[in-house]
Design a protein around this nucleic acid. Structure first.
Lengths: 207, 207
DNA sequence: GCGGCTATTGGACCTTGGGGTGGTACGAAA
DNA sequence: TTTCGTACCACCCCAAGGTCCAATAGCCGC
């Protein structure tokens, strides 16, 4: 299973919290349990791969409310829902919003642990892509406005002289900017620069 | 809503078929109804954006069985499930397998039509990417084995001379292959070639 | 306000890399 | 026998990119 992963359990029923905690800990995870969505939001931080095991029905903020709230956060924690009384519309809402699984009590211990594993794996992947995108954005931020323009035009495949004409400067100037872009973006080749641009572009589009 | 879209309705209950058909036709879709999954598999072809409105519980092949079967097909038709008696595990299975929505009867006409619209939009996007990937693969197929090798190495950002060394040929030979690759792949620039390679690579990885 | 800093621009010069033309060659497949 | 895939040569052009140098404008801090 690789690195230690955290699993957050949120359930208003103390006995359920206790049994879920015991079960998940037995599989080697670091478990933190919370009695309500608000407690979780106040206290939870992971800094490592994690996931959330969440009761749908709770007094105050429900599981679906919490899911909606977390959907706006930077780091989207994968959620495994667990519920005693659920209905189909609720299930559909949760799944459409990206829940990893939705289990009804009583469920097999195996099923829960499988879902948790999938959720943690998903989070591990997410953390990886997030880290990459952060480092990419950090590099893009170091570009000056002009460099950014040249960057954008260069990766479309335009020639330096065409870019120069478009920006009303001489070719030499474009070459200078271009070289700085390669340097600041830490691209070892033009092919790599194109890939960095596409990756950065996708992120911008998502945001 | 753009182009005409087909909606396939599969339900074993004739009266439900009839009312679903009427409802969906009223929204401007071309509806074809089938009494069973097998009938649908035998007869249905669209050639235009489409989706599937599917009853979960049916004698013989169930809705979930049909979903599994279709998942292996080339063209993944988006599915909207509709059911009288469903349960949560069934819903979760359907949603995890990519269903667009899962409605329980009785449902609001508006909800069904919204789901159908989302499903058709999804299919339109899918058809677009499929068409692009087919044309891309067609172009890759015209490459000779050697050209493919050069293609693969070129888009990593390697220099011609490095590629030449790796393939034990002279640099000029690499240049010739490279030029042919640009030509056959119809890439107007090196940047475009890199993007084509990545797009083709993703498709290969998916397959 | 002055010096230092950054962003931007530009010139002269040279090397290297990518790419095209025209021609040659050879083995395998059709 | 012709076509195709592969490989190579000589020659040339242009694009990319580096070196060294220089100028202008705006901003910051002292």
């Amino acid at each position: 299973m690789g690195v230690a992963a955290s699993v957050f359990v949120v359930d208003d029923d103390p006995s359920v919290r206790k049994s879920l905690t015991r079960l998940i800990e037995s599989a080697g995870y670091i478990v933190e349990a919370f009695a309500s969505a608000r407690d979780f939001l106040k206290a939870a931080t992971a800094g490592r791969p994690c996931c959330l095991v969440l009761d749908v029905r709770m007094p105050g903020m429900t599981g679906l409310d919490l899911q909606r709230t977390l959907a706006q956060a930077v780091h989207r924690i994968p959620i495994v829902f667990v519920t005693g009384q659920g209905d189909i519309p609720m299930t559909v809402t949760a799944m459409k919003a990206g829940a990893v699984d939705f289990l009804t009590k009583p469920f097999a211990a195996r099923d829960l642990l499988d879902a948790v594993q999938r959720a943690v794996e998903k989070d591990t992947r997410n953390l990886g892509t997030e880290a990459r995108s952060r480092s990419l954005h950090a590099r893009v931020k170091t570009l000056t406005p002009r460099e950014r323009q040249v960057f954008a035009l260069v990766v479309t495949g335009m020639l330096n002289k065409q870019i120069a004409a478009q920006l009303n400067v001489v070719e030499k100037t474009v070459k200078v900017h271009r070289a700085r872009v390669m340097d600041k973006m830490r691209a070892g080749s033009f092919a790599e620069l194109v890939r960095l641009a596409d990756a950065a572009g996708v992120i911008v589009a998502q945001t």
